[in-house]
Each structure stands twice: as C-alpha cells, then as structure tokens.
Design a protein around this nucleic acid. Structure first.
Lengths: 244, 244
DNA sequence: TAGTGGTCTAGACCACACT
DNA sequence: GTGTGGTCTAGACCACTAG
C-alpha cells in the first residue's frame, strides 16, 4: 500500500494535478482513503519528501515543493564575455540581474587545511591555510556557502586575505596587484546530500541535494587559491560557456 | 532517541570508525543498545540512508556506502587540450584512462520534444525531434544516461543521426562534414533526486542525487543539438578547465 | 534453518500553527 | 481549542540471504 499511496501522489505531482505550493491531503485523509495505518501513510509521504517532491511542516501540513533556481555564471567564452569579471565571485551582479537582493557574510580564519584543499594547493597534509568563509544570502534567505582557502605564505604577503571586509570586486584584483595573476581555473563538480550542518546553515529541507563546486585558481607558477561552494540544487543552475 | 542513534552512527561513519564497506550493527543490536523500539531504530537508519551514508539490503544487513567516482572531462582549455575531441562524448577515452571498461547502449527515436529541449533548440512547443538515447556502462554497471536531441530538419539531412550504430568519434564529425560546425557549447548544471525510473535504470540507491548536465551545441547560425546527461553523484566528478 | 531487513497494524502522547 | 504533523511503543508476518 505504501507504494500505491506514494505512486498516486507522485503521479498527481508530476502531471500537475497537484500544483507547486498546493497542499497535499492530510495523513488522516489518506488513512481513510486507502484504508491503511498511519505508519504506512507516513512512510509513503516520507519517500516523497526524500525525493524532493514535497515539504512537510508540523502544524501546517504538507505542500508540493516549489523550485526557484537562480543562474550562476561560472564561465563565459571570450565572445560572450561582459565587462564584469568572470567566476562564481560575481554573486552580486548575478543576483541583481535576476531581481534578487544579495548579501554576504564573511568571516576569516586560519585553519589546518582539509585534505581536499591541501592536495589542490600542493601543501603538506595539515598545513595552515587562510580561509575566507562566506555565507551568501538572496532576499535575506541563506543561499549558498563559499569558502576560499589560501596558502599561509600568500596571506602573509597579501594582507587583504585576512581582512574580513567584503571586497569589491574581490580579492582577485588585490592578488594581481601583488603579481599573482590567475591564468586559469580548474573546476570540479559533484553532488551529494548535505551534511546536517550544511542543511541547517542553508535551511535545506529533506530531499534536496547540494552541488559541490571546487575551483582551483593557478598562476603560471602554481595553485594559489581553492574555493569550495556548496549550492542547494533547487536554488542553483550553473552555467558554463565553452568553446567547441 | 532517533536523533541519538542517527547521530552516533553518523559520527562513527564520518570519523572512519565505521569504514566504507563495513557492516553496521543490526536493528536488534541497536534496539538492545539504546533501549528503543524497532520503528525508532529503523527511522534513524532510514535517515542515514537518505543522506547517502549507508546502503541497506534485505537479508544482508546495512553497510557504510563506498564512493568510487570517475572523472568526466567536460572542457579543456586550449593550453591543456589533447588530441581527443572535447566534450562529455569522450566517454570511452575517459573510462579507459581510469581503468574501467566502457560500453554504450544506443537507441534512436523520433519524439515530441520535451519543453526544456524545444526551448533550447528554438523549436515550437511539441515539435518533433530526433533523439539518440544512450545508456553508458562502466565495467558492465549502468553509469549514466545521455540523450542527444536534434531538430528533425537536421536528422533528415544527416542520416547518421537516426542510425543506431555507435559512432566513433561521434556525430560531431558527421555534422561538420555536412557544414554544421559547432562553435561553442552552453552547459547548464543542476542536481536533484532521481525519478524512480532513473533510479531503476541506473541502479541508484536511496539517498544518491543526480547531476543534470544540459549541453546545447550551436553553429554560427544557431543551436543544433541538446544533450542531457543524468549522472549519479556518487559515481561522477565533472571537470572544467576555464581561462581566468 | 536462522537471521537479516521490509511491510504493516493500532494506539499513545507531544509540538506547533491557525483562528 | 482544534487539527496538523513529529515521535515513540509493541507486536505481527513476509521476503531475502547466507551458512
């Protein structure tokens, strides 16, 4: 019966009979309609929740989930480039152009590098690195997490790295002024379910995965920055323009 | 209690006390250890499953999930280009270079374009398109789904599009021979939980999201191909090299 | 055959939201 | 207050895997 309940509701959702934002039947309704126990109904609804199709909140009932992704321009080909700098750092421009009000919280710290960072920066395991942790908001809702890691020798040379002020247009220019010109980025993308900490920080409901974007920026002499961005899948659409 | 059980097990997994592939305590063990009911234990284990941390199979118990991602080279900058053609089409090369045996099943069809395809090909809603549906395998395991859509006028001009043979090195060369040279790709990336159909076709367990990669290829005159690739997150890592 | 997880029932009490 | 979902208990039977 669990399969039947879940299948019926799923069909109603994908066909649009149940529109985004609309309320689902209550548990009591479903118990009566299908003649099954409460646990069975809850198990079916839980499956839909974990598929990302519905939300659930105590006292208010369950709704069909809405999607409202924003575009993130991760790269532009030469012919399509605009005056703005490329990269996932153009958060403010991307948001404003989509009618959303951006905000960024920054904190800086010196930490032992996580292994995925030390590998990419070619540092010893556990070496100290400077990190700028950003929480980005759109219309005052937490939208994504964006942590940039720099080797300590660079943070000692470029003081702005450990300055918690929000840089406009970003540290890239500061770095270039000191002779560290990034020539290319190496982007890695995967996705997974969020950790409980990420889910809380980003206000992610059950059933929504995150994209993990790892950008390694290198000068001609080697890597100088690793940026890890955690983006809830229902709120982001990443765009690359690449030459054929 | 559900929180306690799940938290304890999650901590053991992330710290490595429970290694990938290792068995978890049985439901009976956990019931005894925590003094809670079976439903409570199952609810906790179900949460871990939906976070992608563990697998579960009837009769065999639960294990800590293993990850074995493969690299997909989605773009290479000029300076790093190799002789092989770029794109997600270089499946065979990418797999062999990572010690895995690739295989591709292809079927072709003429269908009404899904809206996300007709939009990108600038066709009328519901227009007919030719589609080449691929299921890609690595070591005989289904690995990802890769569907390429072409406008009908193009399929009529380039007969190879509706030929179900596996093309080496792909249709891109055939198209170029007919004067359709793709100048750039527009890649869009997002992620979500798989549909039940995708989960079955790709043998995806509960708690594993998929990356959705939509590549639109355009000549100087406009878009001629849309390729949608569905990649389980635990088995793929997508790489872009982009100029700064 | 024994032991595992999968499904299901029936009932209790709690926490939160709306009116 | 009333109704919603969240948590929990106790017990039953089924389905699959392994020794």
């Amino acid at each position: 019966m669990r399969g039947t309940v879940a299948d019926d509701l799923r069909r109603a959702i994908v066909t649009g009979d149940l529109a985004p934002g609309e309320s689902l039947p209550t548990e009591k309704d479903l118990i009566a309609r299908y003649g099954v126990s409460r646990n069975t109904v809850r198990s079916a609804l839980s499956a839909l929740e974990n598929e990302g199709l519905i939300t659930s909140s105590q006292g208010r009932g369950r709704r069909v989930r809405k999607r409202e992704p924003v575009w993130i321009y991760a790269s532009r080909s030469e012919s399509h480039a605009r005056r703005r700098p490329m990269g996932v750092d153009s958060w403010v421009d991307d948001m404003r152009s989509q009618g959303r009000e951006p905000r960024t919280d920054i904190e800086v710290a010196v930490v032992h590098a996580p292994v995925e960072v030390s590998e990419r920066l070619k540092l010893d395991n556990g070496a100290l690195v400077a990190v700028r942790r950003r929480t980005r908001f759109a219309d005052d809702q937490p939208w994504n997490l964006n942590d940039s890691y720099y080797p300590m020798w660079l943070a000692q040379e470029v003081a702005a790295i450990l300055d918690p002020a929000d840089m406009t247009p970003g540290l890239t220019v500061h770095l270039a002024d000191h002779g560290y010109v990034q020539e290319y980025y190496n982007d890695e993308l995967t996705c997974r379910m969020p950790t409980p900490e990420e889910a809380q920080a980003l206000n992610i409901g059950v059933g929504i995965p995150v994209m993990c974007h790892t950008r390694t920026g290198s000068t001609k002499d080697g890597p100088i920055r690793v940026t890890i961005t955690i983006m809830p899948g229902d709120r982001h659409r990443l765009l690359y323009e690449v030459p054929a």
